[in-house]
């Protein structure tokens, strides 16, 4: 299954690339992610919970590996998610392009989805996934905006807790955590987009 879509951020690629990797931003934008661990270089393991139509509160363990990283232009994400409700695996290519002071993020995922998520969730996956991924990426965009102008209140972002005043993230550890959360976001997006 091939999924192609794009999303436009209001910030240049360097900011988006780093911003996408901020765990505090992404955790709040991502429903259902409750455990993320860095288990090796560019390899993360996490758990998430998702509901798609009749498949409710399905838990997935997800392994994500980032490869072919070209900062701030692109990365490949290898996803292997498994749960009682099925599985998702495949590769997503994510690319960032500058446009009028903003960034177009294009993603193209070649995925295999199986089990109950595929067999009974199919009809709802696309609409639910599109809505949730759009909301998630919009929340990321707003969060970056808050980080860029920490004193300016941003409408509609009151549910996002801003815990770190420093931007961009200073330490390597923080940056790794950011990668991890981006990976999980995209994995969820892919699961939901199907």
């Amino acid at each position: 299954m091939l999924i192609e879509s794009e999303f436009t951020f209001d910030f240049p690629p360097e900011v988006v690339y780093e911003g996408l990797l901020d765990p505090d931003v992404l955790a709040s934008a991502l429903p259902g992610t409750d455990r993320l661990e860095l288990v090796g270089e560019d390899r993360y393991e996490g758990e998430m919970e998702a509901s798609v139509g009749p498949v409710t509160a399905a838990r997935f363990s997800v392994v994500v590996e980032l490869k072919e990283k070209v900062r701030p232009e692109s990365f490949d994400m290898h996803v292997d998610g498994k749960g009682k409700a099925g599985f998702v695996n495949g590769i997503a290519r994510v690319a960032f392009e500058e446009t009028d002071g903003g960034t177009v993020m294009k993603y193209r995922a070649d995925l295999q989805v199986g089990g109950r998520v595929a067999s009974v969730g199919q009809r709802l996956l696309e609409s639910v996934g599109k809505m949730m991924s759009k909301q998630g990426l919009e929340a990321v965009n707003r969060s970056i905006m808050e980080r860029q102008a920490p004193t300016a209140a941003v409408a509609g972002s009151t549910d996002l807790e801003v815990s770190s005043p420093s931007w961009p993230p200073a330490t390597r550890k923080e940056r790794l955590r950011l990668f991890l959360v981006v990976a999980i976001l995209l994995a969820l997006v892919m699961v939901l987009l199907l």
Partner: peptide
């Protein structure tokens, strides 16, 4: 689908 996953295994 091309992965031989049945995509409509319910009466919905």
């Amino acid at each position: 689908d091309e992965g031989a996953q049945l995509l409509n295994a319910s009466f919905m």
